[in-house]
């Protein structure tokens, strides 16, 4: 399926380029990496509007899992600020 190939190649390129740029900039915060990956995945998902409905639903499920991970990171930051407990 050509459209699937384009999706994977674009997503892989974006994730790799992001990792390289942030590594060159010396970024050490893992939550920032994850947040940018999540945003990129969501954007690529939205740009590929012509995927068949079943594929879109399945990819949305992956996005929900990633978003749950993001909420976990946010909660960990809030707990660290409020109570001083470092979870990550």
């Amino acid at each position: 399926m050509k459209i699937y190939d384009y999706y994977i190649v674009i997503l892989a390129s974006l994730l790799l380029i992001t990792t390289v740029i942030m590594a060159v900039l010396g970024e050490t915060r893992l939550d920032l990496y994850f947040t940018i990956y999540l945003i990129e995945t969501l954007v690529v998902n939205e740009l590929f509007v012509y995927l068949n409905p079943k594929a879109k639903r399945s990819l949305n499920a992956v996005n929900y899992v990633l978003f749950t991970g993001f909420l976990f990171l946010v909660a960990a930051e809030v707990i660290e600020i409020l109570y001083g407990i470092k979870l990550l």
Binding site: M1, Y4, Y7, I8, L11, A12, L15, L16, T18, T19, M22, A23, L30, Y33, F34, Y37, T41, A55, S58, L59, A61, V62, V65, L66
Partner: peptide, 18 residues
Amino acid sequence: ITALGISLVILGATCLVL
């Protein structure tokens, strides 16, 4: 490299689902 591992997991999950 940990971030690279996370990106591999994201890509792997996407490919499995597709």
